[in-house]
Amino acid sequence: MASSAIYETAFDEDVQDESNQCPECDGRVTTNVAETVCEECGLVLEDERIDHGPEWRSFSDDEQNRERTGAPLTATRHDRGLSTKIGNNVEAASGQFAGRKRRRLARMRREHSRSRFRSKAEQILAHGLGEIRRLTSALGLSKALGEQACSLFRSAQNEDILRGRSVEAMAAASVYGACRCLGLSRTLDDVASVARVAQSRVRSSYQAMNVELGLPAKPVEPTAFVPRLASALDVTDSIRQRARTLARAAQEAEVTVGVQPSGFAAACLYKACHKHGWLVSQREVAEVADSSPPTIRTHRDALDELDV
């Protein structure tokens, strides 16, 4: 029996034909939900068409809040947010389950909570990331900064920098390191004020992290501290703009090299207040900036020499 090639005209199924004719017998082609078939010869042109649209699913009664997937991956969780949790069932809490069923659910919930961590390192990581979330929430920092701080903590644990140091100190150092890398106006005192360890331990942990990881810490300019200090002193917008102008001029003249940026910003605010007739003492400005009155006077004399 003679045989012939199946596709004598070299038909490519991957190439879609806009015509409504079969490429083999020029018959009529029909398309249903599953496949595209020729009615004359039965040639299947397309089968199991791929739907490139979103695979939305809704597991609730309403179809309005449909999501394609679950929660996105996050660096603020030790397992990237992929783990599940057996919560307290409403029906069990309301007493609709028998006592044996409730005890079984309680045991399942307890064992599931214990199995979250595969090692002691994961348990330490979860504790440290939880402390970072608490610090960023207390300081009012952004979610992106919190994720970067969590990444720094992971890197510190991988490089074995946590050995001999407390988890709370490394978490606070990670938050301060993320602030320094992004150039935010958060001092070490601000981070240590909400941390659960002393400031000296946070400073020591940050120094070790900076040396071992080589953090790209940016120098914080005095202009970044002016809005915070101006809000604390409740001064007018004109005084705030004048203080920013003084700080910017000092930065261009390289007067701010090697000085405490918050103290220099306080001196700019003190000089701007007296320029606009706003009565404020050096002690008040120094307390807001966590500095001292002699430091304010020294920076004020440096600003007087600029003649801005």
Rank of each mutant, 00 (worst) to 15 (best):
R201M: 01
S200H: 09
L229I: 09
S166D: 08
R228A: 13
E212W: 01
S174N: 03
A230N: 03
R201A: 10
G214S: 03
D160N: 14
F225H: 13
L233T: 08
L162Y: 04
E159K: 10
G177A: 15
S166V: 00
R165I: 02
A171R: 08
A192K: 09
R248F: 07
S200K: 11
V194N: 03
A247D: 02
N158A: 09
P216R: 08
S238A: 14
A172T: 03
E221K: 14
N158G: 00
L162R: 15
R228S: 11
T245L: 06
S151T: 02
S205Q: 01
A195E: 06
Q241V: 04
R244W: 07
A192G: 15
R248K: 12
V191Y: 10
F153Y: 14
R203E: 07
T245F: 09
C181V: 14
F153W: 10
R228Q: 10
S200I: 09
Y206F: 15
Q207P: 01
L246G: 08
V175R: 14
Q241R: 13
P222C: 01
R163N: 03
A172N: 00
L188Y: 04
E212Y: 05
E221A: 10
A156Y: 04
F225G: 01
R228V: 06
G177S: 12
C181K: 13
R242D: 04
Q251L: 08
R196K: 15
Y176V: 05
M209V: 01
G177H: 03
A232S: 10
A249Q: 06
A250P: 05
Y176K: 15
D189E: 11
R201E: 09
V226H: 10
S166K: 14
L246T: 05
S155I: 01
A173N: 03
C181E: 15
G177R: 05
L213G: 01
S166Q: 07
R201I: 01
A247W: 05
P222M: 02
L215Y: 01
L162N: 09
A172W: 07
